[in-house]
Design a protein around this nucleic acid. Structure first.
Lengths: 187, 187
DNA sequence: GTCTATAATTTGATAGAC
DNA sequence: GTCTATCAAATTATAGAC
């Protein structure tokens, strides 16, 4: 039946996202995915002809969901503090209890050796989240006496702080560390 | 002759560091190292019996050099701004013109799937640099009316901002981006 | 859509000659 | 110390039956 197809494809995407966030792109194999989902590796190739194809689709889906969770900047928080809180909250819940990295963060770290389309999708995550932050901040009182460059720099530094915080929290095995960084974001 | 041994071992460590920073731990093979250095892979195993052994030694050497470049906190800059500038400068020169990641940053990102001793060494980098920052900042005027926790949080957030900045600079293919973040460090 | 079977390559690692 | 030779396992990917 047709819903089986979509279910297998979805399961593969879910597991691929989880495993890449845990081990990185080079730390995931088709057989890991196949055995985890309960099919053979040739079935994974049926949905995703190449690993590059799979990686790019996982990254695209991740970014789409992330921006969906952020919501429309025109209809979001109106203070800089609340905007930053929203972004921070998404990263904290992404790190979760099992210390999973941001998918595009780990892809970006590995990017020098990754297939082109995967890098393009990882880059797109930062472009889009950065744009969301810039648009959101632009609507606030905080932005009144600040230039476009200052606002963009603030958006970028918030993202950098959160990505770096995830990395450190993970290696220290201390998810609470990311929470600690919150006061550094609100200025 | 004996100096040949040291030379080969050093070349392997140099190349391993460079390749891990580019592709991550899982993106480097013994044959990559061997061909790059001009020996056979069995010779690489002669110096480093296992990949874990090699990874741990590369990380340890990287951290030792990094702290050596930072210098003795008792004998360093005395203003918070200069301390932050020194750390920032090291990261900027590490990123360099070819966009290489911080070795322990990429190892930390991959850490969930890495051998134990490699993770231990990556963790040690953040412990030691964080301690350097905390000790250095504690000696400044800036620290006078601040608690131990506040100082540690500042050290940690500076590190997080720089690691995250490297990641984003790399995927955006824009090393200057890390320079942009500098004003966010000085408070 | 999923399977079996398999190809072609790469990987980490070892044994033993020189 | 470096080599040749080799191994067992894992990797991405394809062909073709059901």
């Amino acid at each position: 039946m047709s819903w089986n197809a979509a279910e297998t494809e979805g399961k593969i995407l879910d597991l691929a996202e989880s495993l890449i966030r845990k081990n990185g792109y080079n730390g995931v194999s088709f057989r890991d995915l196949a055995s985890g989902v309960g099919v053979k590796s040739s079935s994974v190739h049926y949905y995703f002809p190449t690993k590059e194809d799979l990686g790019a689709k996982v990254a695209r889906r991740y970014t789409d969901r992330f921006l969906n969770a952020l919501g429309d900047p025109q209809d979001g928080p109106v203070t800089a503090s609340e905007i930053v809180k929203k972004l921070h909250g998404l990263f904290v819940s992404a790190l979760g209890s099992d210390g999973q990295m941001c998918l595009c963060g780990i892809l970006a770290a590995e990017s020098a050796g990754l297939p082109e389309s995967v890098v393009t999708e990882a880059k797109s995550f930062f472009d889009r989240v950065s744009e969301w932050m810039t648009l959101s901040l632009s609507r606030t009182e905080w932005a009144r006496n600040r230039s476009e460059e200052e606002i963009k720099a603030e958006a970028l530094s918030a993202l950098a702080l959160l990505e770096g915080g995830m990395i450190i929290a993970r290696v220290q095995n201390d998810p609470a560390l990311l929470t600690t960084l919150r006061p550094q974001l609100a200025r």
